[in-house]
Computed example of a mutant assay.
Amino acid sequence: MGSGNRPPEVADGPTEPIVTDRILTVPNVLSVVRLIGVPIFVYLLLVPHADGWALAILMLSGFTDWADGKLARLLNQTSKLGGLLDPLVDRLYVVSTLIAFAMRDIIPWWVAAILIGRDLVLACTLPIYRRRGLPPPTVLYLGKAATFALMFALPLVLAAQGDWAFAPYGRAWGYALLAWGTGLYVWTGLLYLLAARNVARTVPLVPRPDAAARDAGTPEAESP
Results as ranks from 00 to 15, higher is better:
residue 69 G to F: 05
residue 64 T to Q: 08
residue 48 P to N: 09
residue 6 R to D: 09
residue 60 L to R: 00
residue 94 V to Y: 14
residue 79 S to I: 06
residue 15 T to M: 11
residue 102 A to E: 08
residue 46 L to G: 02
residue 113 A to F: 13
residue 58 L to F: 08
residue 24 L to I: 13
residue 15 T to A: 13
residue 30 L to F: 09
residue 173 W to H: 04
residue 14 P to F: 10
residue 4 G to K: 10
residue 38 V to A: 09
residue 16 E to V: 11
residue 153 A to Y: 00
residue 79 S to T: 14
residue 189 G to V: 01
residue 56 A to D: 07
residue 116 I to E: 02
residue 39 P to L: 01
residue 169 Y to S: 01
residue 195 A to G: 07
residue 209 P to H: 06
residue 50 A to L: 09
residue 102 A to F: 01
residue 59 M to N: 11
residue 2 G to P: 04
residue 107 I to H: 02
residue 85 L to S: 03
residue 51 D to H: 11
residue 157 V to Y: 06
residue 152 F to K: 04
residue 97 T to N: 08
residue 28 N to L: 08
residue 214 R to Y: 14
residue 163 D to T: 01
residue 125 T to L: 02
residue 165 A to L: 14
residue 133 G to V: 00
residue 122 L to F: 05
residue 117 G to H: 04
residue 36 I to L: 15
residue 134 L to D: 12
residue 155 P to L: 08
residue 157 V to H: 04
residue 3 S to C: 03
residue 59 M to Q: 11
residue 137 P to G: 03
residue 29 V to P: 07
residue 46 L to V: 06
residue 101 F to L: 06
residue 197 R to E: 08
residue 149 A to S: 15
residue 66 W to N: 07
residue 3 S to Y: 13
residue 43 Y to V: 05
residue 66 W to K: 10
residue 23 I to T: 12
residue 199 V to K: 04
residue 53 W to E: 14
residue 94 V to M: 15
residue 215 D to H: 13
residue 165 A to Y: 15
residue 45 L to S: 03
residue 165 A to F: 15
residue 50 A to R: 08
residue 122 L to M: 12
residue 145 A to F: 02
residue 17 P to C: 06
residue 13 G to K: 10
residue 5 N to Q: 12
residue 211 A to F: 11
residue 91 R to K: 15
residue 5 N to A: 12
residue 202 T to M: 10
residue 159 A to W: 08
residue 80 K to M: 10
residue 122 L to P: 00
residue 113 A to N: 01
residue 23 I to L: 13
residue 39 P to K: 12
residue 145 A to I: 06
residue 27 P to A: 04
residue 160 A to S: 13
residue 49 H to R: 14
